[in-house]
Amino acid sequence: MLRYIARRILIMIPTLLITSALIFTVMQLPPSDYFETYVAEMAAQGEKADMSRVEFLKKEYGFDKPLIERYFLWVTGFVRGDFGYSFEYEMPVSDVVGERLALTVLVSFCTILMTWIVAFPIGIYSATHQYSWADYGLTFIGLLGIAVPHFLLALIFMYFANVWFGLSIGGLMDPIYFNQPWNWAKVQSVLAHLWIPVLIIGAGGTGSMVRAIRANLLDELQKQYYVTAKAKGLPPGKALVKYPLRMSLNFFVSHIGDVLPSIVSGSELTAVVLSLQTTGPLLLRALQSQDMYLAGSFLLFLSCLTVVGVLISDILLGFLDPRIRLQGGRTK
């Protein structure tokens, strides 16, 4: 088992390296950089930009050096805990990102939890009651969850919350608590706001999860070991829990690796619509102003989040299924 985990972590390193190189390339692609945008903006306002400051920043962050060197500076800085400097906010990226990143992780984690809690029983019910009305209904709702994009769902949700209940449901906490130290009141405020974004972001993932569990369990239910178990007189509930359910549990854990990227990217968009205090709105702003270190660090953080999430699901899978840890590699 240890060997399996070690191998999985080793595979992760080149993945992250390629990802970071990719993101760095994307960040370098724009024909102009932040400084040019900044100088042009200043000129448009009729002011003269402080060229000495621009020169200093350019030198400090190695903009005069070749690309490869800058990439290494950036990546090694990541390992040291120096995430670069946000030119727009004029402070280190880690200070800007701070709490937002933690909140992004919190939202994503709760979403996965909700996906599991909701999708599991529904999937089992749909599979065991195949072609019943409830099955059709649940399948249709699940399909709707997949089809309706997160941000539109957020918009519709906000509209009806406002019209029917007179609530405004934006934000992840009352604004007064943001950037304040954590205390009980703040936790309460976050908990009170959390369920709406979690519900919205989780809708798509839950839908596809239900579909997948249903299909998987239906395959298992036709296998001979289950028929044998039932023929030997095991009560249906016990037969179900003891055999097919355990088999589909594998898949249940591994599927999270597929759902996670869509959860993370969905939460970004939803965050913009609901103005959550997560990374979404900030990322959008950073991309618009070409604040490259901030945007790049965000993208890399988000990718790390998915890669680590997939790693955890793979390790869990290794515990569940001995075939995988003996062979190495994923199920697919």
Partner: peptide, 24 residues
């Protein structure tokens, strides 16, 4: 194979945002 794995592990929408932000 490796490239596919990397691209699939990236959160799509933020990357779309980044790529479309670089269009002049």
């Amino acid at each position: 194979q490796r490239t596919i794995e990397v691209v699939q592990s990236l959160p799509t929408i933020p990357l779309w945002l980044a790529l479309s932000a670089i269009m002049p």
